[in-house]
């Protein structure tokens, strides 16, 4: 626990001075507040921007941040220094993961407030977002472990992020894209947030989780954290 907390606190200090990571947590919540208050179109679904950006936020911020933090530590050999100080890989990943989770949940609070959720609606929204954040963090960890440096992590995470973040939006305009997007957890999140909760959606999300955990296990065994 001590080591997890040390990594967690390290990441707070580091992110405060790392604008590229910091902006990812701030951008979508700020955009949501602005768009929700400034744009009002006829026939626009209620809280359209808040719901749209919430899904994009989950597909982007935890994934790219996790991948970039791990890849940077590998590239700069700070991760080795931590491992040699008796920090276990699981402690490191939990420290970084819990930090990103809390940051993303802070963003979730902004989206929830913009949507005016309360009671059961609020709990449901938070659970959907939490599941999405954990899935995206796992995907980010897989990319971070697979990459030897930040550049290769960015090269992999950007297309993955685009698929996860933009497909739910594009599926609003194209039915075929919508059918394809259904296999991704971010699309299922989008449907659930918009009130279309179904057993198949939960199953698809669970399958996504299994696939990501399997990918993480394979990649970790193959490359480890160093």
């Amino acid at each position: 626990m001590k080591n997890i907390m040390a990594i967690f606190l390290k990441q707070i200090s580091d992110t405060m001075k790392n604008k590229t990571v910091l902006i990812q947590f701030v951008m979508f919540p700020v955009l949501t507040v602005i768009m929700e208050n400034c744009i009002e179109l006829d026939n626009m679904p209620e809280h359209f921007f808040a719901k749209l950006f919430a899904v994009m936020f989950v597909g982007m911020a935890p994934l790219t941040s996790m991948a970039s933090i791990i890849a940077e530590e590998k590239e700069k050999n700070t991760l080795r220094a931590l491992m040699m100080s008796n920090v276990r890989p699981a402690e490191y990943l939990l420290g970084i993961g819990s930090y990103l989770f809390i940051c993303c949940m802070a963003g979730t609070a902004v989206f929830a407030a913009s949507c005016g959720y309360s009671g059961k609606e609020l709990i449901s929204f938070i659970l959907i977002m939490a599941a999405g954040i954990i899935l995206s963090e796992t995907a980010g960890a897989v990319i971070g472990i697979a990459s030897n440096d930040q550049m290769s992590a960015t090269a992999i995470s950007i297309p993955v992020m685009i698929v996860l973040s933009f497909l739910p939006m594009l599926s609003m305009f194209n039915e075929t894209i919508g059918k394809v997007a259904k296999v991704f957890y971010s699309q299922q999140m989008s449907l659930m947030i918009n009130g279309e909760q179904s057993t198949s959606g939960i199953i698809i999300t669970l399958v996504n989780m299994l696939v990501l955990v399997a990918a993480f296990t394979v990649m970790y065994r193959k490359k480890g954290l160093e």
Partner: peptide, 25 residues
Amino acid sequence: IMMDNFGVYDRLSCYNNLKIFARIY
């Protein structure tokens, strides 16, 4: 242990670099 290729956290101060390890130890 001081390895030749060990990195430091560039964005953090010297104090905060050591503080991470102080917390661990």
